[in-house]
């Protein structure tokens, strides 16, 4: 059952990304390009996605997930170095090519060589991320 609903959720996610135009890197870069021909589509996608999710979060109060277990606890509201540096690195890569992890997978079948190369490089980046983080931690400790 868990696998079935994971498949349904992933399928809906892919459908939404495809319909919204988020697998088109021109639309993503258009949103980020405030000095070019600015494209507000991404704001509509974000806004549209936040509405059902907001309702979903409000339904988690005093309940447990339908298939058992616990809802994920709210993390400490600490905005640390890793969150800031990590999000900045992510944003730079996102701006450079216009792909983030979800749309990169969703567009893999029609993304050509660039799409496959991106996913491969992203996988390598995810794998080496803890090592990069350890280096930064060591550098920060030395300062």
């Amino acid at each position: 059952m868990r696998n079935l609903f994971a498949l349904i959720s992933g399928g809906l996610f892919g459908t939404g990304l495809f319909i919204s135009g988020m697998t088109d890197t021109r639309k993503v870069q258009g949103w980020l390009d405030v000095f070019g021909e600015w494209d507000p589509t991404l704001a509509f996608v974000m806004g549209g996605a936040i509405i059902p999710m907001f309702i979903a979060w409000s339904l988690t109060n005093n309940r447990t997930p339908a298939l058992g277990g616990m809802f994920p606890p709210k993390p400490d509201p600490v905005i640390g170095r890793n969150l800031i540096i990590g999000s900045t690195l992510f944003g730079l890569g996102w701006g450079l090519v216009g792909l983030c992890p979800g749309p990169a997978i969703a567009s893999l079948s029609f993304g050509g060589l660039q799409g496959a190369t991106f996913v491969l490089a992203m996988g390598v980046g995810m794998y080496i991320s803890p090592m990069v983080k350890a280096r930064l931690d060591a550098a920060a400790a030395a300062v």
Binding site: A6, S9, I19, V45, A49, I55, P65
Partner: peptide, 19 residues
């Protein structure tokens, strides 16, 4: 964008509320 966004939100709602 809005329609696709709502579907993305539904995907997240299923993953949260069910799994």
């Amino acid at each position: 964008g809005l329609a696709g966004g709502v579907i993305i939100g539904l995907a997240g709602a299923v993953y949260l509320l069910v799994n």
